[in-house]
């Protein structure tokens, strides 16, 4: 989404522009000609988004994955709108770009929440674990960030790039929690949901990487950023298109275990088993 909005034209200019907008410290130097590959990537993304939306409309997946399709629809509308602005009213592009970016970020949070619901919705135990881990991670991150800001070792995010990078990093953390729990608890995930999850995760991860490098390296990374961001987004859209092309139902819900056992006794048995394995191992190593 946001990726193909070609941030190449945004140049850091602290001062005047900061007064004009709430957050971004960016301003345009001048309108510039769009390079052919930029236009191609932009149009390719619009085409892929429309394909996905059409697929969702025909198969009625709007009902199944509402936030995901709302997100796609918003980004699709934004892209066309931004393209018009870019081509015909270039001077308004910068502020609109960043407000659009943060709007997408907010809807992106809803998509992350939907992925959580789709993956862990039927597994209350793993879901509870995810909530606890996420809460713990968020408290740790916020405490460290606030501590750093308080000590003055890390400045408060001064630019829109830094703010977006930090918010994307929090999203990335939540997706790390989800990915590790679904791997540990061997949660079965259907093809479509897996596609949405992996696509969105890749998008967030590449966003964190490119934004971090852009914020750290500055102008030297600008040329790479201009290409990488839209390219990654186009790759993610292709992945989503492939994953959502064919419907595949969710894996069957597993039956109840043969013997009803409460969690405590199962945990006790597991600990006993693990201790036994460790004891065998220690015996072999005992001189």
């Amino acid at each position: 989404m946001d990726l193909k909005r070609f941030p190449s034209q945004l140049t850091v200019k602290k001062g005047k522009a900061f007064e004009a907008f709430l957050l971004p410290c960016y301003d345009f130097v001048n309108s510039r000609q769009m390079k052919p590959y930029e236009l191609f990537l932009w149009l390719a993304c619009v085409a892929l988004e429309s394909l996905l939306l059409l697929r969702g409309w025909v198969s009625e997946w709007f009902r199944k994955y509402p936030f995901f399709f709302v997100y796609l629809a918003c980004v699709f509308i934004q892209d066309i709108f931004f393209l018009m602005i870019y081509l015909f009213h270039f001077k308004y592009y910068a502020p609109i770009y960043w407000y659009g970016e943060f709007f997408s970020l907010v809807i992106g949070c809803c998509v992350a929440w939907e992925i959580f619901r789709l993956v862990l919705g039927r597994y209350p135990g793993a879901g509870r674990m995810a909530r606890n881990m996420l809460l713990f991670a968020l408290i740790m991150v916020l405490t460290k960030s606030l501590g750093d800001v308080w000590n003055g070792s890390v400045p408060w995010p001064g630019t829109a790039i830094e703010l977006e990078r930090n918010l994307r990093a929090i999203q990335a953390l939540s997706l790390i929690v989800l990915a590790s729990l679904s791997a540990y608890y061997e949660i079965p995930i259907g093809r479509n949901v897996k596609g949405i999850f992996i696509g969105y995760g890749l998008f967030v991860a590449t966003s964190v990487m490119t934004l971090t490098l852009r914020a750290s390296l500055g102008e030297t990374f600008q040329a790479a950023w201009v290409f990488l961001q839209p390219f990654c987004y186009a790759a993610v859209l292709s992945l989503w298109s492939a994953a959502l092309w064919r419907y595949e139902g969710d894996p069957l819900l597993e039956g109840q275990p043969k013997i009803e056992e409460d969690y405590q006794s199962v945990a006790r048995v597991t600990r006993k088993g693990l201790h036994q394995a460790r004891a065998f191992l220690s015996k072999a190593m005992r001189p």
């Binding site: 608890y185 061997e186 949660i187 275990p257 199962v266 945990a267």
Partner: peptide, 11 residues
């Protein structure tokens, strides 16, 4: 353990 606990509410 995993097979039992992932569905448990008391985890």
């Amino acid at each position: 353990h995993i097979a039992h606990s992932r569905k448990s509410d008391e985890l």
